[in-house]
Write a protein that binds this DNA or RNA. Structure first.
Lengths: 187, 187
DNA sequence: ATATGTGTGGACCAATTGGTCTAGTCCTGT
DNA sequence: ACAGGACTAGACCAATTGGTCCACACATAT
């Protein structure tokens, strides 16, 4: 695997586990098996550049997960079920300590506007992807539904992390279905 | 104000803004106007000790906010409305960058079991406080309702942070009311 | 007055941080 | 063959990190 990709992947992984400030360049470079020269060749602005790339990479994975969950589904609830199950699996396979890849990576760094707006952009990507599927699957208020689902996932992940149990994530579909099923009343 | 309290308060504030690893001891001590000797006098284990104390202090404030919001309310929805409005105010007054005081402080540090379990303990405190009020105000499934509300608040705060707008927080009550009003059907 | 204990002030430390820079390697096109 | 760019390797740097340590202030108690 090319050095640049190795850097991005390990950065995404480490930042997610320990936050932007919790990962030193040395640690990161050792884990990626890359020398400093390569880092500053591929990312002239160093750590911040790498963090942006890592967050984008992680976000793309999430987008693909959303697509994979909803595309074969015949209702929004079904896709939601699939996505939550997949997230719970990932959570269980991780050390049950990792956070949201975007917030850990971008909300921790310098309180830099570039970081914040990039995070906003990536989050909107998730929400808009979910909105498309909601619309296609006949949800009456796709945007509001997608946003609510986004919030619930963020919160459920946090709670799972604290409790070291994927139960909150797994229980999410029943909560979502209650309010925003396949087209019944929602604001 | 006693030095120890000054340390706790400024630590809570700074950790919340920049995360555990994003705040250096020098920066913290300057902000608290305290010398290093005092820190290690009051908190023999240094930064980690201080972080635990700061998180506890922040959590107590949150507990009080929950109580203040729900005690005078005549329905769970009313209390929820009050709490969300108050949180939105706080968000708007802050730099719109601060995170959840507990996750910023405890989920960022060393992936230490003491930190994790303390975070879990504090979160359970919030949920149990909300559960009590839900029960008192006649919600059918107080525990589930409180947990759902917890998750939504976490997610809404995150979204508000990304968008730099308190709108998601302010919109929360309508979402919560939809599914879990003052006693109508919820799982 | 003098002893005791709590708390303060800050010099000092090794280790680590993010970052720079240069010498060299490797591949490609000519 | 060789020129030139892409890339690697890592020594080196100033600044900062969390932490230790001790001399000192200032109470209260005797």
């Amino acid at each position: 695997m090319p050095t640049k990709d190795r850097l991005i992947r390990t950065a995404a992984e480490l930042f997610r586990r320990s936050g932007y400030n919790g990962v030193g360049l040395n640690e990161l470079l050792t884990a990626a098996n890359a020398p400093k020269g390569s880092l500053y060749h591929h990312f002239p602005n160093g750590k911040p550049d790498l963090a942006l790339a890592a967050a984008t990479w992680a976000s793309d994975r999430m987008l693909r997960m959303i697509a994979v969950a909803y595309e074969p589904a015949s209702s929004f609830a079904e896709g939601t079920q699939a996505l939550c199950a997949r997230l719970a699996e990932i959570f269980d396979r991780s050390g049950k300590w990792d956070g949201c890849p975007i917030s850990s990576t971008l909300f921790e760094g310098p309180d830099n506007e570039a970081f914040r707006s990039h995070a906003a952009h990536l989050y909107e990507g998730w929400i808009s992807e979910a909105t498309q599927h909601a619309k296609r699957l006949g949800v009456k208020t796709p945007q509001a539904t997608a946003e609510e689902f986004f919030m619930l996932i963020q919160g459920a992940w946090q709670l799972s992390r604290a409790r070291r149990s994927s139960a909150p994530l797994r229980a999410l579909p029943t909560i979502v279905r209650r309010g925003v099923g396949t087209g019944d009343g929602n604001s």
